[in-house]
């Protein structure tokens, strides 16, 4: 009898323990599910609200703009408008033309470097938002707020002044032209938008693990910081493109920390 009672007590203890751990796990998983499904949908609504200007178009024009052919004309206009605004600044900026698969570096409206985009992967978000809102979204340049890359922005080599000519002769530096590196970068823009640029050449994931984890952690941090404070959108629409790595390197080293970008979808 005592044995059975003891066993019953043990079972009860275990079930309490399971409940103690299971409830937070269930709550946590539900919250994750909520994050997964609610925020992107909410973000679409927020986007439409934020970028729809009722004074810009007449009701008839709004109906016409439901047609993709008209929208593509309008997005082209927005893209050029955005580039024109960028040309007023003295700094190096860039344009991403996903229609012509081109990435262009520009200074004062002059294209100084052109790179062919070999692959485009775009979030479904852009096909779910209202055309009128999308046109407004693209009509002004994006400003870089944060960037991550696998390479250094400025590859500085530190050198101590030599004491004499013998030490100076030993310090002579020749750059390593055979160094193999993986070149990828992620840019986060002010209008809650992320652009990921990866090299089109093959890139073994294990060599890229640190960068990959860093980018994932950054998105996770962004998501959770906002989720815990119950602030607005926690979903960042993303576009991934692939370019030859020599182009990514030139672009990354050329653009200033808070560079501007024009986008053509």
């Amino acid at each position: 009898m005592e044995d059975i009672e003891f066993k019953n007590e043990e079972i009860q203890k275990k079930s309490h323990l399971i409940q103690f751990f299971l409830i937070p796990i269930i709550l946590f998983v539900s919250y994750i599910l909520f994050l997964m499904f609610y925020f992107p949908v909410k973000q679409v609504k927020e986007f439409n609200k934020a970028f729809t200007d009722s004074t810009l178009y007449s009701e008839e024009e709004k109906i016409i703009l439901l047609d993709d052919n008209f929208t593509s004309l309008k997005t082209k206009e927005s893209f050029l408008q955005s580039r024109l605004l960028m040309s007023k600044s003295d700094t190096i900026c860039f344009s991403v033309d996903l229609v012509d698969s081109l990435l262009m570096l520009e200074v004062k409206g002059v294209v100084i470097h052109e790179a062919k985009i070999t692959k485009i992967d775009m979030s479904r978000f852009f096909s779910r938002v209202e055309n009128v809102a999308l046109i407004k979204f693209l009509s002004e340049p994006f400003i870089i707020e944060n960037k991550l890359a696998t390479i250094e922005k400025e590859p500085i080599i530190y050198k101590k002044a030599p004491k004499d000519t013998i030490e100076a002769a030993q310090q002579v530096f020749t750059p390593d032209t055979l160094a193999q590196e993986i070149i990828c970068m992620t840019l986060l823009f002010n209008k809650n938008f992320q652009l990921e640029i990866n090299q089109s050449e093959e890139k073994p994931e294990h060599k890229n693990l640190s960068y990959s984890m860093k980018t994932k952690f950054q998105s996770f941090k962004f998501l959770f910081n906002k989720a815990f404070t119950f602030e607005n959108p926690t979903y960042i629409p993303k576009i991934s493109i692939e370019l030859p790595k020599k182009d990514i390197k030139s672009i990354y080293r050329a653009i200033p920390y808070h560079s501007q970008m024009a986008l053509h979808l």
Binding site: F37, L66, R124, S127, S219, L223
Partner: peptide, 21 residues
């Protein structure tokens, strides 16, 4: 989470309607 967030957008209707004026 990022994959599922992207998937959730699948349930929203596409806005591009190829409307003929």
């Amino acid at each position: 989470v990022p994959i599922a967030q992207e998937m959730s957008l699948f349930f929203l209707p596409e806005t591009h309607k190829e409307f003929i004026s």
